[in-house]
Design a protein around this nucleic acid. Sequence first.
DNA 1: CAGCAATGTTGGCAGTGTATACATAGATGT
DNA 2: ACATCTATGTATACACTGCCAACATTGCTG
Lengths: 207, 207
Amino acid sequence: MSKRSGETYHHGNLHDTLIAAAIELIRDKGPNAFSLRELAKKAGVSHTAPYRHFKDKNALLSAIAETGFKTLTERTRNAAMQFDGDPKRQLIESGVAYVELALDNPEITQLMFGGFIDTEKCPKENLDSEADNAFQGLVNLIESGKQSGVFRNEETELLALATWSMVHGLAMLITGGQLCGIADEQDQVRDLSAKVESLLMEGILVR
Amino acid sequence: MSKRSGETYHHGNLHDTLIAAAIELIRDKGPNAFSLRELAKKAGVSHTAPYRHFKDKNALLSAIAETGFKTLTERTRNAAMQFDGDPKRQLIESGVAYVELALDNPEITQLMFGGFIDTEKCPKENLDSEADNAFQGLVNLIESGKQSGVFRNEETELLALATWSMVHGLAMLITGGQLCGIADEQDQVRDLSAKVESLLMEGILVR
DNA sequence: CAGCAATGTTGGCAGTGTATACATAGATGT
DNA sequence: ACATCTATGTATACACTGCCAACATTGCTG
């Protein structure tokens, strides 16, 4: 069945098309101004067609956030893999990757963490499980660093949480526009996040 | 002019009433589900009355966020004041206050940092200036700590940014529901944030 | 006390999420 | 080959939203 000029009644792959188009829209107008109807128009379907693929607007946003968490897991893991014997460097570089990804996708980051999605308490379902993957990678990283005697022998979860908080906070401040003059450009951000994480490594107090 | 049973045509203090009611609504339904019309109904006025006091929905939200930044400045400053000669303790306690305030007002925190408000680039105006106040307090704190030889002689802004990121990240993770089993209750949060900040003080690396 | 500015109200418009009923087409079993 | 089932898309409708324009009421000020 030739779908010449895309005028078939059935779209063929609307699900993925919608997600891709939605990401574009959110990038343009922010997660707050995003609307299903505009998305449908952009995808060239009627305004209720998305409901055949997503229960809700919320479900669509969740799906997008999930892809965000997936790439977050990938990026940080890849960054860590490149410095396999050096836990300190691994921690720093995966953190830099975290911040850089957020800087490249501020709106998606806000969508993921800003409270746009109703998560019904904390059900540790779909979406959260993917976020946990990223955290689990961090935990493993720290665990191995502890065993090789690089990191202090504190509770692993605590160390992981501290690292995550630091990186996440920096990312959120940047994407939230709070660090305007300080960290706008890519290079500044790379440098800044590395420095900040080094501080967490070495500590702030005079020895 | 007796405004018996509040049935005067002119409300008298609608501006503040709206802000207070809006905060309640946001607390209940989240910043995303908040609507001007419901707010007006709750305040007992017509659905366009708020426009006499706020240019926009965005302007109303900005005003609320600003009050949030004000109390954030207050709380952290108060916490620091209580340990005046001890910069390390000051830093920790003001950070704990930051996180606790966020935990007590998750929705308002999301409103402040989540990207619900259009800030038109980063104009460092109204809203941002109030946020800067909080940051300036942190800078002062670190500066004095450096001079008394407690903190390392790194660039002050960098130290401040690291501290802020750490605390802010923890706050955002908690209010975003990412730390569900880990940090739900007030006591846990106090303990956790203090521990995390101590880590930043002492560093993560083995010495 | 006349007029003005501040503050509210009514009504309307375009845009939104979503429920319901209907239309079409691709897959499946005989 | 063909009838039928199901997945997918459409049309229509409703309540709700932000905001605009026109009008009403009030308190203040000359």
